[in-house]
């Protein structure tokens, strides 16, 4: 049983995201420890990229701050090794295909296994291109996470049948960022997925309040929150760990 499956055993999963190195790698480590203490079920670690085309302004800024603090793929792997000394919560990377490709796909994915990363979310790697990394992910036991979007009509079963780890349901059109309302019929997407697989589904993009998280988690197996957390980090900088911890606790309590 993979560590990712464990994330969905504690009721609905709360999955926080942050960009590594924002504002610096030491603070990232403290924030992740606070997230774990506050009940996070799975943690999504963003490796900063120069041109994050799937991100809205909030996470774009976090990527800029991450790169400005000299965060690299290597310093992120070092961070993961330090965390894995005592943390068992599943962790996945969220980054872009070129970060993996440029490092050397075999070297990147084998290092994921060795450092203790359980999965990879690559927003610019759709179903049609997953063979780029899938054989290596299978070789090293790192789950390549599939995404399903509001525009995935006619593709959901095809994607779900081969999904590993969990399925990331993109709640809304557009890029990442806080939204006042989510209008996509998540329930229908989940029911189509359920006809093909039992892999858990978590909803992300646009979720910021406990009410939204509760609503999305009720329709699926969990809620993913990025921009709302990155905003807290942007506001409090090195003092952010405590505030992120409080926020994660309130979100986990809301969906439990």
């Amino acid at each position: 049983m993979s560590r990712i499956a464990d994330a969905f055993k504690n009721g609905k999963a709360f999955i926080p995201f942050l960009t590594c190195g924002d504002p610096d790698i030491e603070t990232t480590e403290k924030i992740i420890r606070e997230m774990v203490a506050a009940g996070a079920d799975l943690i999504e670690l963003g490796i900063p990229f120069s041109d994050p085309t799937a991100e809205g302004p909030v996470i774009q800024e976090a990527n800029i701050r991450g790169l400005a603090s000299h965060t690299t793929t290597d310093t992120v792997f070092d961070l993961v090794r330090r965390l894995r000394a005592d943390i068992t919560v599943p962790m996945v990377f969220m980054t872009y295909a070129n970060v993996v490709y440029s490092y050397g796909a075999d070297r990147f994915i084998s290092t994921c296994e060795q450092a203790g990363i359980d999965g990879l979310i690559l927003p610019d790697l759709p179903y049609e291109e997953k063979d780029e990394f899938m054989p290596l992910c299978e070789k090293y036991g790192v789950e390549l996470i599939s995404l399903i979007a509001p525009t995935s009509e006619g593709r959901i079963s095809m994607i779900a049948k081969e999904a590993k780890g969990f399925i990331y349901i993109v709640s809304s059109l557009g890029v990442t960022g806080v939204r006042s309302s989510i209008t996509t019929d998540i329930g229908s997407i989940v029911s189509v997925i359920r006809q093909s697989t039992d892999v858990p589904c978590a909803v992300g993009f646009g979720i910021s309040t406990p009410e939204q998280a509760a609503k999305m988690a009720a329709l699926s197996d969990g809620a993913i929150v990025g921009s709302a957390i990155v905003k807290i980090i942007a506001k409090y900088g090195r003092k952010a760990p405590k505030y992120v911890g409080e926020y994660v606790r309130s979100m986990k309590d809301a969906i439990r």
Binding site: P126, E129, I148, T151, S152
Partner: peptide
């Protein structure tokens, strides 16, 4: 070449 784009754009 190829199609390295978000799932949201695939049907488009």
């Amino acid at each position: 070449g190829g199609q390295y784009i978000p799932e949201t754009l695939m049907n488009a």
